[in-house]
């Protein structure tokens, strides 16, 4: 009995060793893409497309691995040593952190076209069926008795863009100034009953716990939420204006130099700007740069005026510093 137990354990150990070593035997080069939560499906299809493309132009078979999680958790993993060749995020500040620890050069945005932003998104509203509170635009969010679900802007890209969108809206109104913008976001966050730390949590709070009247979220995520909860009665409301959510991508110099994958990583990211990449982005509800990809999905991306963060706030660095550092304007909203 005992020896047979030992023997089976021995076999198990052998099997495990085999499982660990097997990938090494295949000498295919691998690329690791560290991304945030909701890009999983998009990159799954994009990776398959790129693998075929790379095989055609170089004859080499490659393997692409994906890693997904909350944006800042992913970036922290890369800082702490996760050997990701490329990082694809939903905000410039997250990738700037990599530059701070010299994993990438400070001018990383200049290395790819369009400031290294292959596709964009924006912040929209999701409301309950029939829109009982008649939420049409930003001012409706600060009405008394309206529950607004926004995740914590300090910890989620989603919340950050929502906050900046509200601020930008108020600032750009006729006669709008900083004080009015601050008063606007203060009222807005006064209506937020729960501050989840990420977009996924906020979606659960709104859709499954039935908290709040409106959820602020990315356009591409709104599409996913509708797919999942649409039958339970959630509708999209497009405000009169919103923020341009930029999704930057970068290859990590320190990693690709070590692994010898710089050319591959670069080609992988450049392919995002190609018609194939653009078409796939649009398919997964990201706003493509390419007009013909956009034309394939008429009506999918409402043409509302979008303002970018650098346009309204000077730069990402400034926006981050003034609004979201400890003791910044966001913290002041909650000071009593």
């Amino acid at each position: 009995m005992i020896s047979s137990f030992h023997f089976s354990r021995f076999i198990l150990v052998l099997g495990l060793i085999g499982a660990v070593l097997a990938p090494l035997a295949r000498a295919d080069r691998t690329l690791l893409n560290a991304s945030y939560d909701v890009t999983r499906e998009f990159y799954k299809e994009y990776n398959a497309a790129f693998i075929t493309h790379w095989k055609e132009i170089s004859g080499e078979t490659i393997v692409i691995n994906q890693s997904h999680g909350g944006s800042s958790k992913q970036v922290r993993s890369v800082i702490d040593g996760l050997a990701a060749d490329v990082v694809t995020m939903n905000g410039v500040p997250d990738i700037d952190q990599l530059a701070k620890v010299s994993l990438i050069p400070a001018d990383w945005q200049q290395r790819l076209p369009h400031d290294s932003i292959p596709y964009t998104s924006t912040i929209l509203f999701l409301v309950r069926k029939g829109n009982p509170k008649q939420i049409k635009d930003w001012p409706d969010l600060i009405k008394e008795g309206t529950g607004v679900i926004i995740p914590n802007p300090k910890t989620s890209g989603n919340g950050r863009y929502s906050y900046l969108a509200a601020w930008g809206y108020a600032l750009r109104q006729p006669g709008g100034d900083e004080a009015q913008a601050k008063a606007f976001v203060k009222k807005l966050f006064g209506n937020v009953p729960v501050l989840d730390s990420g977009g996924r949590g906020a979606t659960t709070t709104f859709a499954q716990r039935a908290i709040g009247d409106v959820l602020l979220t990315f356009e591409n995520e709104a599409a996913l939420i509708l797919k999942e909860f649409g039958s339970d009665g959630i509708e999209v409301v497009v405000p009169s204006t919103s923020v341009l959510a930029e999704n930057p991508v970068v290859w990590v110099d320190k990693v690709v130099n070590k692994k010898g994958t710089e050319k591959l990583a670069k080609a992988y990211l450049e392919y995002l700007f190609s018609p194939v990449g653009q078409e796939l982005a649009a398919k997964y509800y990201f706003r493509p740069l390419d007009a013909s990809a956009l034309a394939h999905y008429p009506g999918r991306f409402p043409a509302i005026p979008l303002f970018s963060v650098p346009e309204v706030f000077g730069s990402w660095e400034k926006a981050q510093k003034i609004h979201f550092t400890d003791g910044g304007i966001f913290d002041q909203l909650y000071q009593k």
């Binding site: 800042s72 958790k73 922290r76 701070k100 729960v194 501050l195 730390s197 909650y334 009593k336």
Partner: peptide, 27 residues
């Protein structure tokens, strides 16, 4: 706790959450 607390600053934020929040801010 983070799932049930509501996590409002100055009201229902527990200290371990603040630690995680700081990490999320790369601090």
């Amino acid at each position: 706790v983070v799932f049930i607390a509501g996590n409002m600053p100055m009201h229902s934020e527990i200290t371990p959450l603040l630690i995680i929040t700081k990490l999320e801010q790369y601090d």
